[in-house]
């Protein structure tokens, strides 16, 4: 979108769960003000990649730079500073179940700012308005529907006006109407507040509605990256399989099959 250095730079990230290699050398750059959708089926490594972007996991090799800083080499205090400038909406919402919706949204403000209660309450109500949840602030997270939890999580993620927003499966498990309204919300956040947004999803419709660029993961590798049109017209068979919801052809080797059944490795 512009000529500045990318907001997110991932270089050669390799990650393991135990012995199993889940990410096999990921390279990815996200520009300022763009909505990047990371797409892939279950087990493609997209959640693992997100956890590395958030600094919740450390890569075995490679670097992750957010806003120009290598998050795995940053001193703890500077990492905490950096984290105040990013917001995350988790797949399950991860709202604190012992706090009301409003208190959830207020928590980052209470912890990171010296604003007075009145101002903080106004900001919280403002964010609830943005996600169309005004009036629901006094409910407990357990009293919300699935779509409302996702909205509340988004409100909490943007309460500090972050430069960078991560959404993990924002539309998973929601009906088409609600998920389209969440897509609209994400687009509005980018347009109105100029955030850079990374969305991890397996929802194709949603991905093509919101993305500026799409990055397709499969088995721990980036198999395609580009604009919506580039992805649609991709010549790669694997990308087309994903777009057309075709399952992978499994060729059966009878001998190997029998060996597996009898547990002979």
């Amino acid at each position: 979108m512009n000529t500045e250095a990318p907001i997110i730079e991932v270089e050669g990230v390799v990650a393991h769960y135990g012995q199993r290699e889940v990410l096999k050398g990921i390279d990815l750059a996200v520009d300022d003000g763009e909505i990047m959708v990371i797409m892939g089926g279950s087990g493609s490594g997209k959640s693992t990649l997100l956890n590395h972007l958030l600094g919740l996991l450390r890569p075995s090799r490679g670097t992750v730079r957010l806003l120009g800083r290598d998050i795995n080499r940053l001193p703890a205090m500077e990492l905490l500073e950096l984290r105040r400038r990013m917001g995350v909406a988790f797949q399950s919402g991860a709202l604190f179940s012992s706090l009301t919706v409003a208190e959830n949204i207020l928590l980052p403000l209470r912890e990171h700012t010296d604003l007075d209660e009145h101002t903080m309450a106004i900001i919280a109500r403002l964010k609830l308005e943005v996600v169309s949840l005004s009036g629901f602030g006094d409910l407990m997270p357990a009293e919300l529907s699935g779509g409302m939890v996702k909205r509340a999580a988004l409100a909490r993620a943007i309460v500090m006006d972050p430069k960078l927003l991560f959404c993990d499966e924002p539309t998973a498990g929601l009906d088409p109407v609600v998920s389209s309204s969440i897509d609209q919300l994400i687009l509005r956040l980018r347009d109105a507040l100029g955030m850079t947004i990374v969305v991890v999803t397996h929802d194709l419709d949603s991905a093509f509605r919101i993305a500026d660029r799409i990055c397709v993961l499969e088995e721990g590798r980036v198999i395609a990256i580009g604009s919506k049109d580039e992805i649609r017209s991709s010549g790669s068979e694997r990308v087309q399989n994903l777009l057309n919801r075709r399952s992978k052809e499994v060729t059966l080797d009878p001998d190997a099959y029998l060996r597996r059944l009898f547990g002979e490795g």
Binding site: L54, L56, R83, E111
Partner: peptide, 13 residues
């Protein structure tokens, strides 16, 4: 429930 991850990424130790 990922609430501890949520705290971490919010910059709350």
């Amino acid at each position: 429930n990922q609430e501890i991850d949520a705290l971490t990424v919010m910059g709350i130790e």
